[in-house]
Computed example of a mutant assay.
Amino acid sequence: MSKTLILGGSGFVGSYLIKELGVNSLQNFDKNPSPFFNKHTIIGDIRNVEDLASLDSDFDTVVLLAAEHRDDVSPVSVYYDVNVQGTKNVLDFMDKCGIKRLIFTSSVAVYGLNKDNPAEDHPEDPFNHYGKSKWRAEQVIKKWYDDNPEGKSVTIIRPTVIFGERNRGNVYNLLKQIASGRFLMIGSGQNKKSMAYVGNVVSFIKQCLDTKASGYNVYNYVDKPDLNMTELVSLIEAKLNIDIPKQRIPYALGMLGGYFFDLMAFISSKKLSINSVRVKKFCATTQFDSSKVHSVFRAPFSLKQGLERTLEYEFTKQKDDEILFFSE
């Protein structure tokens, strides 16, 4: 029976992936305990070669989820220590163990900002340290593959922002603000946002594991069709049976308010939930082409279903526990 090593499986995506795969033929390796699968978790850090060396060698596939991805990491060298050097350490471990199959989660952040619906062949132009470190990690993996491609299989998955039950990231913050009823649209509301439901992302990873594709493959992952902000608000209104104020704040006025909060944050030395960067991101169109992945994969949930499942769990369902995953 094939055995899979999941690196970074204690987090949001990893926890859903282990649930999807089952625990019988896998091992989780993470610097943090797993809230659900701790009996199948070994504590370690991909930055530490000794931690990796302590693992068994009887794996045929590595799924590398481990990454430093928050917006506020300091010093910025941590992005490169984890995302680049950590990847090099994993590839060295794979070579020593004779493991030739790798699934790596990268990010659409490698394309940079304000690109026109980039597909996988779009030039990479990352703008922040997370995106730059992910692109450098991809380059390290490509060189590892090209140096000796015989028998190797590499799948690079570049997801857009991933949301779902238990996640506390930017999508949840937006849903919470809209669901509160104290939401005012900034701008026209016609800007579209690419999103990915966690249940679909892990289902695609499982398909990659099951099909054992050969060669070097890169996929954007986005659930389609993209919703614009007005459509997203309407979906939330219908699901939660609430009425959202229909007033809209002009973009220029919204940015002025963002700059005001920037000043308040500077004066108070406190990190505020509203700032000019978040206003700009909210009003921007962020779309990515995912026709390639959906030509080979049928998502089990539509984007609407993923949003409705998340809304029901977060805002209407009684919770059995308080396990949450925090991300940007």
Rank of each mutant, 00 (worst) to 15 (best):
Q247I: 08
Y259F: 10
G215L: 05
L227A: 00
S214W: 10
A252R: 11
A252S: 13
G257E: 09
V279I: 15
T230C: 10
F261E: 03
I267T: 11
S273C: 09
S273Q: 12
P245Y: 02
K270I: 07
L240M: 06
S276E: 10
T211Y: 06
A252W: 12
K271T: 14
S214K: 14
E237N: 05
N220S: 05
D226V: 09
D226G: 02
S276Y: 11
A252I: 13
Y221Q: 01
K281E: 15
P225W: 12
Y221E: 03
R278N: 05
E231F: 08
Y221P: 04
V222R: 02
T285M: 04
E231S: 10
N220Q: 12
N220H: 09
G257S: 13
K246M: 06
I242N: 02
R248P: 06
A265Y: 04
A252K: 11
P245G: 02
C283F: 08
T230H: 09
K239H: 14
L272P: 14
V218K: 00
L253R: 09
N220E: 03
K281A: 10
I274E: 10
V218M: 12
S234T: 13
F266P: 01
V277D: 14
I249N: 01
Y216H: 01
D210M: 04
Q247L: 14
N275M: 07
E237C: 03
D262Q: 02
F282Q: 02
I267M: 09
R248S: 06
P225Y: 04
D226P: 15
K239S: 09
C283N: 09
A238C: 09
D243I: 13
D223C: 01
P250H: 04
I244L: 04
Y216I: 06
K246P: 08
K271N: 07
L253G: 03
T230R: 11
I244M: 05
V279D: 00
A265C: 07
T230P: 12
N220P: 12
F266T: 09
K246R: 14
L227K: 05
N241S: 15
A238D: 13
P245K: 02
A213H: 13
Y221K: 01
K246E: 12
Y219W: 10
T211C: 11
N220G: 09
N275W: 05
L232M: 13
G215P: 08
Y221V: 04
A284T: 15
K271P: 06
L256E: 09
N241K: 15
V277E: 13
G257N: 07
V218I: 15
M255R: 11
L227D: 01
I236T: 00
Y259K: 13
K239Y: 02
L253E: 14
S234W: 10
L263V: 10
L235G: 00
N241V: 08
G254F: 03
S268W: 08
I267Q: 08
I242D: 03
P225Q: 02
P250K: 05
G215A: 03
M255I: 13
G254W: 03
G215W: 07
L256M: 11
F260L: 15
S268Q: 09
K271L: 04
N228I: 06
K246S: 11
P250Y: 00
I236V: 15
T285K: 08
S276Q: 06
K281V: 12
L272I: 04
K212Y: 03
D226W: 01
F266S: 11
K281I: 13
V222I: 10
A252F: 11
I274Y: 08
N217Y: 06
L235N: 03
